[in-house]
Amino acid sequence: MAREPSITQEQVSRAAEAIRDSGSKPTARAIRERLGAGSMATVLKFYQAWAEAQVRPSDPPVVLPPPLQKGLLDFVAAEVARSKSELNGELDAANQANEDLIRENERQALVVDNLTSALETAHADKATLAGQLREVEAERDVARQEATAERQAAEAARTELAKALLRLESMPRLEKELDELRQELQQERDARFASEQTAAVAGAKLEGALQAKAAADTAQSRAVDEMTAAREELKAAHALNAQLQADLLAAVRPASAKPMTRKPLKPQTAQKKA
């Protein structure tokens, strides 16, 4: 978009007339210096328009006497010479204005070239920055995804930690229950040992009763009954022992990461075959 001139034709015309009235020859440079604004091209254009408007049409030829014509011719020759001198001065001034205009055009062309180069550099910088911006946005998206994954992993770790803390908090209770089961198992072992001793005593009694069978059938029957009762008591003790072992294993498994396998205890018996 072209810029509007900062001076007008009227300003240039008034400045040229003021210079002419002061007795000086109006020139584009003198007008520009007097105005203090405008480019040389604009001043020269308006000055040429003003100068063309100052030319007056020639008057119709007048027939004069020869002496007067000679005097007039001499006067005209002198005026022509003076006009030539003035025209040469104006031509020099115009040439100087043209040179100034050419220099200014060259300066403006250089400025335009510099601005064009700067604009191309700016476009290149813009493209580079746009590429860097895309890379930064891609890295930002990757960082967001990684942060989301890390947050999810941290949340899962916190959940697992909470579960582990709950399990850890329940460990004393499980250990207490395990101790109680161990005590009960020991009591059952003691009871089983007592039962085995009772069974051994019953076996001894049975053996004595068998030896005395020939003496009394009634004593034999009583001994057989005692032996049967002892066997039933021993069988009940074995069943109770197996139940206690199963209960103990069921209580220990939730508190341990690995399953605990125990071999069933073999009952010690002092029973003798009759």
Rank of each mutant, 00 (worst) to 15 (best):
L72M: 13
Q268R: 08
T198A: 09
D92M: 06
S24K: 15
S58Q: 09
A194G: 13
A251I: 05
E169S: 10
K272E: 09
A157G: 01
L115K: 08
A49I: 10
E196P: 00
K70N: 07
A18E: 13
K272C: 00
L101V: 10
R14Q: 15
V43Y: 05
G23E: 03
Y47T: 03
R82V: 01
R158T: 10
E160H: 04
D125C: 06
Q54C: 00
G38I: 01
E99G: 08
D179P: 01
A237L: 05
A15I: 00
T121Y: 01
A236Q: 14
M40D: 00
A18N: 11
R151M: 11
Q268C: 00
E180V: 12
E184S: 07
P5T: 03
G203Y: 04
G71H: 10
Q220D: 07
L133H: 10
A41V: 00
V224I: 13
A154L: 13
L35Q: 02
L72H: 02
E233K: 11
Q268Y: 12
A250H: 03
Q145Y: 05
L115V: 06
A93V: 01
E139C: 01
L248M: 03
P61T: 11
L87Y: 12
Q183P: 03
V252C: 01
R158E: 11
A51G: 01
N241V: 01
